[in-house]
Design a protein around this nucleic acid. Structure first.
Lengths: 215, 215
DNA sequence: GTCTATATCCTGATAGAC
DNA sequence: GTCTATCAGGATATAGAC
């Protein structure tokens, strides 16, 4: 890396473009144009477009997940293992939402993460799987402690729904504000976090659905 | 259209491929190859790739939304306007989930709808906006009747979370089964629907979150 | 309506001068 | 490390014979 920070400029530009248009629809030429660097520099610094995608994700994924685990550790040591459900959810959700207002491109990155989860057959997600799994195993343990009686199948369906709600919220800042004609403020991050935490907590605590629906 | 049903074969193949790999990553050549038709036929029948994408969506969107409105009408006339929250959610969710097991490519289509909602800056969604809006206005009225005291901003945040949960569930059949080591059965559609309805109902009914969180 | 052949452009990637 | 020039391949789209 040189003093001009070419790698950083490429990563910033790619992060922003990928978040806006998706991975497949952004060419390396658009990236170098936005970054103001030479066409060849992406292959010099990263080797391939695919490696660039992975580098974009890796750069911020570790700090994000580290912060999630740090919060969870903090709550667990403070409450001696008896962490409230809302606190576990907060540790999972808040770092991602907060990252979305950090100046250094975090906004684009969280949209990328949301996009990543919404694209099922995704080689990038496969590659990053290990990093996510460590976090989820830790959170699974914490969730199960707060919900000792929950059935395995109920738990995993609900976790899936929670990921969906998070995904779309990270992906799409504008829709709630637009549909509510301004009542929802996407820039009030504490509000977003609390809404998500409350919604997910209620969903996780809801009674087991009936076995059969008569219609 | 001819007797061989070239248009249908193209639509089926495109629907399947788009659902599997996304819009941008599928070429018209892949589509014609999968459909077993000539390269030029897409442009003859649809005019452009973008028009094909729109045609794929339009073909199934009207029946889906018609079924949603039909269910809602049925419940409202039966219960004289006093429809249970779970029934409104059922009318919104069940037709989409059920379409996912219809033989004629419905499985691919609902994944496409999920993908559509997860991609914010999407020209296709803009084009189909009108068709969705009619449905949502009807459902907004129904929801507000079952939740008369809810604040506008709480309501729209929660609708957003519900769309996210639906989106990911329609997009990604496999993750809950994989993570739960088989406890979740993606083919048990009644189970999926009931899980989603119960989760979303609990979320919609949850008490208003506290104003400030002290951490 | 179907097909072949082709036009035109853009893609990711690289070679080699500086 | 940066740049220009260029490659080989694939993209959408079309022209024109059948």
């Amino acid at each position: 890396m040189t003093a001009s920070g070419t790698q950083e400029r490429i990563l910033d530009a790619a992060e922003c473009l990928f978040a806006e248009h998706g991975f497949g629809d952004v060419s390396v030429r658009q990236v170098v144009h936005t970054a103001g660097v030479n066409v060849a520099s992406i292959h010099y610094h990263f080797g391939s477009k695919e490696a660039l995608v992975e580098a974009v994700m890796s750069r911020r994924l570790k700090p994000l997940n580290d912060e999630r685990l740090r919060l969870l550790d903090e709550y667990e040591s403070r409450d001696e293992g008896e962490v409230a459900l809302e606190d576990v959810l907060y540790a999972l959700i808040a770092p991602a939402v907060k990252l979305s207002r950090s100046r250094k491109g975090g906004k684009s990155f969280v949209r990328l993460v949301g996009r990543l989860f919404a694209e099922p057959s995704n080689t990038v997600l496969e590659r990053l799987k290990d990093r996510f799994e460590v976090v989820f195993i830790r959170f699974h343990r914490a969730f199960k402690r707060t919900l000792p009686a929950i059935r395995k199948r109920d738990y995993f369906w609900r976790i899936h729904f929670i990921l969906g709600a998070m995904s779309l919220t990270l992906c799409d800042r504008e829709r709630p504000a637009a549909w509510s004609e301004g009542s929802c403020d996407p820039d009030d991050l504490d509000e977003v976090i609390q809404q998500l935490v409350a919604f997910c907590a209620a969903g996780l605590r809801s009674p087991v659905p009936r076995k059969k629906r008569k219609r």
